[in-house]
């Protein structure tokens, strides 16, 4: 038992160090070479490239990456399915659809959209997709079928989004297109403040749910017998995971594979699935993963920015493939 606690502490320390290291690296690296002194100076005076461009972007990558992987962990627990996540289940795409509707609708009337209404739109879209996935999950028992349904829902949403984009004004299309590919660029401090609040609250609430989440990992029957109010718990879990992934989509567009790959890697690192350590672990792991991917996106083909989703896919998809191959068929279908 001692060993376990030591391992958890060491793993958390490692992830924290990794996140901090990547934060610094991200701030320092870029098309303009900047020394540490200049960084400190820029932060101190709250002006310059570092303060106005890089720092908010880095903060967004860390916060949203963490939110995404915690959301993935919640969905995996909820569906008892190791390859569930906001992207594969079509929840991100649902958010993408509603956000583009909001964008096109507002911008074409010349109304400036606040970040909050973007989040609200994304949340509505997430819940609609989630509703469909839940309907499906009642009918299909196997975990692979559920994922197929999610991908279908995602595709439908993407198709409608493309349709909406076709009818948008030219000036909006560029905006919309960039956003729908997924990117942390162009984040303002105002955005960071809002996302930090939203994610912070959702994360705190999630952490307080770690006890019933742990019970739920034993399946619904046992969780109920242990004293979990299943109906309330399911609603809480859905709301929290949707809020987390909606926040991400509103600010950075749909980002793939973080939600599946990171929780799996973190569980492997901790060698446990206990929510009380995995939730903070997932947040740190997701932050580090997205910081790394954003670094690659910015610097690999500098000065061109790649979309974040293509980078996360390159590093995340192999993990998912490995997961599917190592599971041999769909056995996790008990709900």
């Amino acid at each position: 038992m001692r060993d376990d606690r030591l391992r958890y502490a060491a793993a958390l320390a490692l992830l924290t160090a990794l996140t901090l290291g990547l934060l610094l690296w991200n701030i320092g690296a870029g098309s303009v070479d900047i020394t540490l002194g200049e960084i400190a100076d820029s932060i101190w005076r709250m002006t310059g490239i570092i303060w106005t461009i890089r720092l908010p972007r880095v903060a967004a990558a860390a916060i949203l990456g963490g939110a995404l992987s915690v959301s993935g962990f919640l969905l995996q627990t909820f569906f008892a399915n190791p390859i569930a996540g906001p992207f594969v289940l079509g929840i991100s795409s649902g958010a993408k659809l509603t956000v583009s509707l909001v964008m096109v609708g507002f911008l074409s009337r010349g109304i400036v959209i606040s970040s909050m209404s973007m989040v609200a739109g994304a949340f509505a879209g997430s819940m609609i997709s989630m509703g469909f996935v839940l309907l499906m999950s009642r009918r299909v028992r196997s975990m692979s079928m559920l994922v197929v349904c999610g991908i279908m829902i995602g595709n439908i949403c993407s198709a409608i989004t493309d349709f909406v984009v076709t009818f948008a004004d030219d000036s909006n299309i560029v905006n919309l297109h960039n956003w729908s590919l997924g990117s942390f660029s162009g984040t303002s401090w105002e955005n960071v403040r809002l996302m930090a609040w939203l994610v912070g609250i959702a994360l705190a609430l999630t952490f307080l749910l770690s006890k019933p989440i742990g019970a739920y990992q034993m399946g619904e029957v046992y969780a109920q017998n242990m004293g979990v109010n299943i109906k309330r718990f399911r609603v809480e879990l859905i709301l929290l995971s949707s809020l987390l992934s909606a926040t991400v989509t509103a600010f950075a567009g749909p980002i793939s594979f973080v939600g599946i790959a990171v929780p799996h890697l973190v569980k492997g690192l901790f060698r446990t699935a206990k929510p009380i350590v995995i939730i903070p672990g997932c947040f740190l792991g997701g932050a580090a993963f997205c910081l790394f991917c954003d670094l690659v996106a910015r610097t690999a083909f500098a000065p061109r920015d790649m979309s974040i989703s293509s980078v996360t896919a390159v590093f995340g998809a192999p993990v998912v493939l490995y997961l599917m191959a190592s599971r041999r068929g769909g056995r996790g279908g008990q709900s």
Binding site: P82, K211, G214, A215, Q217, M218, G219, V221, Y222, M226, G227, V228, K267, R271, T272, A273, K274, R331, G332, Q334
Partner: peptide, 19 residues
């Protein structure tokens, strides 16, 4: 119910009774 909890030792499973 066929139970396949992820990464749980038998101690962990028995300990859930303390919930």
């Amino acid at each position: 119910a066929h139970l396949r909890p992820e990464l749980m030792t038998c101690f962990d499973v028995a300990a859930t009774g303390r919930y």
